[in-house]
């Protein structure tokens, strides 16, 4: 073939749903939203059950990394302690750092010693709050007041760091209008009730469209372990081929569902968003190091 007459190489991104990275780097315009919605629905064609991950999929996070959010939650908890309890329990010296430290210890304890089902273990917000309450009130006299207060602080900060994914909400509505079933599956230390409360806060009416919500904090088995999918199939009475799942985590939202026979769509967090979170995480780690804390073993984006 004459070298000069050779056709030009063709360059293409491989995966149609890799658009999210591209779109969100450009910004969330209505045009992008409807395109994304259409691509999700195209992926779901022929399926009767559409499933979504919650955090960073149905509800999108800001650029605050998880570690920093934990510190914000700790500040909020400290700020919400009533004066009478502070006086009664001698909590004047307690800071957000103390609460954060106990929270991380509680996480570790839960994952280390938690109940195992099919080899899986999951932490639960209830356990974290109980540990924090016990640190504040070793005698346990005011647990009934403390725990709800701490939970409210947690949910308030979470809600402030999330906003609904309009493309996913539109896809849910369209899919439901076509007679499809919609479920949510979350690998999270929050129980289903807390997640539901967040969704109700941020995207009112959505839960009316969702048939069921599974949280690994309730089920113990998780998407990441792959053990939850067969349980869902049994509960809904549908075979694996009926399902398509969308989410941002490559192992739990893409690889494992496909291994279990589900279709799956990977909606990764945009690269720039990850980079911004990493940047903030680095600053957080440095700031903690200045205070004498080496948080690298647990601080994540």
């Amino acid at each position: 073939m004459d070298m000069d007459n050779r056709p030009d190489p063709v360059v293409e991104p491989v995966y149609p749903l890799g658009f999210r990275r591209h779109f969100e780097d450009q910004g969330n315009t209505p045009h992008n939203t409807s395109e994304m919605r259409d691509l999700i629905l195209k992926q779901a064609r022929g399926r009767s059950v559409m499933s979504f991950d919650v955090f960073d999929t149905l509800l999108l996070r800001t650029d605050v990394p998880e570690a920093e959010r934990f510190l914000e939650i700790s500040h909020e908890m400290r700020a919400r302690l009533p004066e009478d309890l502070i006086a009664e329990l001698g909590l004047a010296e307690i800071t957000a750092q103390d609460i954060l430290m106990v929270r991380i210890e509680a996480f570790r304890f839960t994952y280390r010693t938690g109940r195992r089902i099919e080899g899986c273990v999951e932490g639960a917000l209830d356990d974290l709050l109980a540990q924090i309450a016990r640190m504040l009130d070793p005698g346990g006299r005011f647990t009934d007041r403390l725990v709800p207060l701490l939970r409210a602080a947690e949910l308030a900060v979470e809600a402030a760091s999330l906003h609904p994914n309009q493309a996913v909400l539109q896809a849910i509505e369209a899919f439901r209008n076509n007679g499809g079933r919609v479920i949510l599956i979350s690998d999270m230390y929050m129980r289903g009730g807390d997640i539901r409360a967040l969704i109700d806060m941020l995207a009112p009416g959505t839960m009316a469209q969702v048939e069921r919500l599974w949280s690994s904090a309730d089920e113990i088995v998780s998407k990441r372990s792959g053990k939850i999918f067969s349980r869902i199939e049994a509960e809904l009475g549908e075979p694996a081929e009926a399902f398509v799942h969308f989410g941002d985590a490559l192992p739990g939202d893409f690889v494992r569902p496909r291994e279990c026979g589900w279709a799956a769509g990977h909606l990764p967090v945009p690269r720039k968003a990850i980079a911004r979170r990493k940047e903030r995480l680095q600053r957080f780690v440095l700031a903690q190091a200045e205070l004498g804390w080496d948080v690298r073993s647990w601080a994540k984006i």
Partner: peptide
């Protein structure tokens, strides 16, 4: 090539495919 990529459990959004069309 497309099928091999699609069948692989990798982050597809990080894959860019170039088709040289002919061997170069």
């Amino acid at each position: 090539v497309r099928k091999a990529i699609w069948d692989s459990d990798v982050c597809h959004s990080q894959v860019l495919l170039v088709d040289n069309v002919v061997n170069r």
